[in-house]
Design a binder for these strands. Structure first.
Lengths: 216, 216
DNA sequence: AGTTTATTGTGAATATTTTCACAAAAATTT
DNA sequence: AAATTTTTGTGAAAATATTCACAATAAACT
């Protein structure tokens, strides 16, 4: 039984898994904590600590078996079966996500999009896009638990409330606003504006040589 | 002179600024650390500590003047003038960023996009999109210092090397791979797959009730 | 003008995360 | 089969980050 998990350690775990996928496709069968550390940009002790949290064992002097490790991580990350995801708000970001090919190989499938400006069903590639009023029914019928919110910030909270009421348990939110959720629902925010602003800050800092930069 | 700045404190600063923009547009003139803390989802002491790092002063018992604070933050974050940004790789994500309206009000302007599949100049809205071989010249001519990389991961490092050689100092990277840069260049990574996987992990965790979740 | 009240600013205390460092163990060499 | 090498696994130490808690102080009230 695990007691405390930091978000960062989970992100790292997922990173390791993605690195392992690449190593595996290159035909590697064995990997050391040191290799993973380099690829992930962390310390090797960090890698081993992360693994030890989940009782993942390697072989002293032999490192880790790539495929075995990959499978263990996939299991921990709940990716041994396909996860269905819906995207709410088919603006620029929403469209990009629906198009994005990278999810397939992570066992994530975007099964539908929803948008309030739509009056009738459309399609992006193979993904059906529905008017927003179809969403409640869709979630229930298809037992959806994960949603992406990419609506304007003014309607984000309202959308979230509906989602939660219908049983959504996890949300990736692109609306640049802090949303409130019950404890039963996990939310993670991505704010592209903030990301870019942060980069700009550091560039200005370097330019002015005001400061010692730490750990980007 | 500031000696150590964590990335997180910068992200928070940018968050505060965005919150202040909203408060200001609602007509508020005064704000307490407690209000900002609520909106940003942190402790009020955290807000005050962040400010004190940059010698931002409020009034005891009076809180902070919204517009003054906003201006101070904008100055710290280097947003008192327009920052020009280019987007390299006009796939799904790249297109979304070029379309994205949110940057304008942060004084960020996307001035061009570049893509290797293009043979001649195109346009997305007002933003010109050029074949990739025009990029070096463009950077030099327009003194660009910030770039977004949204090319496939296989060409990301190659693109980055070119950018750095031509003087790019800050990069927001969407390619799901760790890129190596000289110290003179700041890089920040956004990996949408990882973000979604992390949410899925926590949802599975909640479902199985394996664990106490901390600080999402 | 004095008293009360609310909020900042910040050292000190706590909590968390990362790194070090080394014994334990497995593979390889001699 | 003993000695050497290499890498894991993990307590302990160090570094960071967050929160507490309270004196200082300014506004509001009496």
């Amino acid at each position: 039984m695990i007691s405390k998990l930091s978000r960062n350690s989970i992100v790292r775990l997922a990173q390791y898994k993605n690195i392992l996928n690449k190593l595996s496709s290159l035909g590697l069968v064995k990997v050391f904590s040191d290799n993973l550390a380099d690829a992930a940009g962390v310390n090797s002790a960090q890698v081993r600590k992360d693994f030890s949290q989940f009782s993942i064992k390697g072989n002293r002097r032999g490192g880790y078996d790539v495929n075995e490790l990959r499978q263990q991580l996939a299991q921990i990350l709940g990716k041994d079966e396909v996860t269905k995801v819906i995207v709410v708000g088919i603006g620029n970001i929403g469209k990009a996500l629906v198009h994005y090919k990278g999810f397939e190989k992570e066992n994530i499938r975007i099964v539908a999009g929803f948008d309030s400006s739509l009056k009738s069903e459309g399609k992006i590639g193979n993904v059906p896009i529905y008017p927003i009023d179809r969403i409640e029914d869709f979630i229930l019928r298809n037992k959806i638990r994960i949603a992406v919110i990419s609506v304007p910030d003014t309607s984000a909270q309202e959308v979230l409330n509906i989602l939660v009421k219908k049983g959504i348990k996890g949300i990736l939110n692109f609306a640049p606003i802090r949303l409130t959720t019950p404890k039963s629902c996990v939310i993670h925010n991505v704010n592209l504006g903030l990301e870019l602003e942060t980069v700009i800050f550091y560039v200005n800092l370097l330019k002015d040589k005001k400061v010692a930069i730490k750990r980007i």
